[in-house]
Amino acid sequence: MSEVLRIENLSAGYDALGVLHNIDFTVQAGERIGIIGLNGHGKSTLLRAIAGLTGWQSGSIKLNGVEIGGVRSQGPGRFTHQIVRRGLALMPQGDALFHGLTVADHLDSGAYTRRAWRERMRRRERMLEVFPPLAKLLSVPVGRLSGGERRMVSLARGLMADASLLLIDEPSLGLAPKISKGLIEALMRIDLGSGAMVIAEQNLSRLEGAMTRLVTLHAGKLKGGAAANMGLLGGHH
């Protein structure tokens, strides 16, 4: 089993505020990990720190063995595109969509990395299988969609790339229970291949049973991730 993500001693925050403290976290290929935590305990910040979107961070983040972290306090987002090109897809809270562009444009933009761009049509077909409601909406500007449809577009855009690590921030936030259940089921259907998926959620019941492993994030520290620590002394057992 290969490691997709390995975080060591990560601290991160915004300006004077430290949100994450000394986090160690490992994700193996094929895993679906749920991060459970209350509002304001650092779930989103953890995902954003991996994507290089926090104000400052220190510690090591390795994606597929390549260092993407390090000590940074130079403006957030400066390196995000490079991290994304190394195989990360973050579907953030609030979706970060392009309101004037159509659904088809969004799917194409998700396939922005060069290899994916060439086969974007095929990928688009695949996405429409995962999210059938989008098929009818391809030429509609995203600004006119409903919340659930937008979330689908955001997820589909993230899935279009050849990401080996999918980070999904609260897929069910602000959606009716039925819709969010459908979304999570759709996410479970996705074939991860040699990649992995991390979902941050407030609500334990939504993820229970569906994930390989659950960890909790409390006050900026990871708890219960026994496997997260395994790597440290693995060699000595």
Binding site: A51, L53, G77, T80, H81, Q82, V84, R85, A89, L90, P92, D95, A96, L97, F98, H99, G100, L101, D105, D108, S109, G110, Y112, T113, W117, R157, G158, A161
Partner: peptide, 24 residues
């Protein structure tokens, strides 16, 4: 074109553009 999409994406939401791999 791909560049055109990139520019249009950046017009609408720079953070979203960075998240799909567009270098600002």
């Amino acid at each position: 074109s791909r560049r055109g999409l990139e520019i249009r994406a950046m017009m609408q939401n720079p953070e979203g553009a960075a998240l799909v791999g567009v270098g600002l």
